[in-house]
Nucleic acid binder design. Structure first.
Lengths: 194, 194
DNA sequence: TTCACTGGAATGAACGTTCATTCATGGCCA
DNA sequence: TGGCCATGAATGAACGTTCATTCCAGTGAA
């Protein structure tokens, strides 16, 4: 194969292994094997495992943001914006279960926690991406459409259930068809609307 | 100290270390050190690390169940039962942050996932404990008080947000005072009520 | 030939677990 | 009472394994 892009191959292999088995059961040797590359080769593309893990996170987050901001109903009512983001996010995660499971692992690990801490304290190294959902909530609160609760709490009320259910879906505990997604979205809206 | 209970000491040390740093950053050697015990001694009390981890989970779950079932408003309306369980759970987790963080780690790991799988498929090894919350939801659905959604989904809608917010609380991202808890409980009820 | 890239064996640190040994206690006999 | 022994809990050095990372010989395009 003349056109091999080892950088991408390695990321893909890492994604599959880590999403399925977790950070600690995804040895570099196996990532290498899956990427059809030798163990040492990985280190030509990524300084070490931590960097690989963080790069992969960044890649996924970028893709996700792109999807969320595509066709974004700017200027439309808050409810519409919420349904757009919620729906797209849900659809994306359901069609990309590996990305979902990877993100879940990431946020439940020290990697994700420190990233989150940076973000909330405003020390994000990454300015181009503003927090879409937080903006919607602030707007909704000031328009008295949403309950007057801290943004972090509104986020949890809206997104928390969805993430749980998607997890149950990827684990095979529920089947999330379109109508169920709609009902859930409504229920989450009920939870945050005033 | 004549009255040392090494079994309990080891569990406590494991709890603290694992809750703070995760399963994979809690070596047996350090658990031993923290419990003021030699490495080998742990193996007199627990067959191996997996057993230690599962025993600790069981202990915490038992304590939690005891709290939830204490003063349980049997025969009262569904809403009342829900508020009781929700409130007690919330209070318990907030006053036992180590237990909360441990459970979180556990459920986000292969340990917890297989446990959950057993439970849902009815293969639980542990018959004495019925799933309180699931019972409430089934009752609420049949009385047409709650939305007609799968129990797993209702659970996520009700409990998901709370767990997220408590996490943010233990990480210092929000301060959960009593009024905020009440507002959240109401919001969760809004999400599941018909 | 040169040189950037690759493969995969080698390295060393960290871990869970084992086991030969030590230690502490309580019962027993003189 | 005082000395001895039996029991089994506790110890921690050592072992085997796994892993991330390094190193260097080999390869092929220019």
């Amino acid at each position: 194969m003349t056109n091999s892009d080892k950088h991408a191959d390695i990321l893909q292999a890492a994604l599959e292994l880590i999403a399925e088995r977790g950070f600690h059961d995804a040895p570099m040797s196996e990532i290498a094997e899956k990427a059809h590359v030798a163990a040492g080769t990985i280190y030509r593309y990524f300084e070490n495992k931590d960097v690989l893990i963080n790069d992969l996170f960044q890649e996924i987050e970028d893709k996700l943001m792109e999807v969320l901001l595509d066709n974004y109903p700017l200027g439309e009512p808050v409810k519409e914006q919420f349904f757009h983001v919620f729906g797209e996010l849900c659809r994306y995660l359901l069609t990309h279960p590996l990305h979902f499971r990877y993100m879940e692992q990431f946020f439940n690990s020290p990697y994700g926690i420190s990233k989150r801490r940076d973000k909330i304290s405003g020390k994000a190294t990454n300015y181009r991406k503003h927090d879409t959902l937080a903006e919607i909530f602030k707007e909704g609160i000031s328009q008295q459409i949403l309950k007057d609760l801290p943004v972090v709490v509104l986020s949890s009320l809206a997104i928390g259930p969805m993430l749980y259910v998607i997890r149950d879906h990827t684990l095979g505990f529920v089947v999330l068809e379109e109508s169920l997604i709609r009902q859930m979205t409504e229920a989450c809206w009920d939870a945050i609307k005033r």
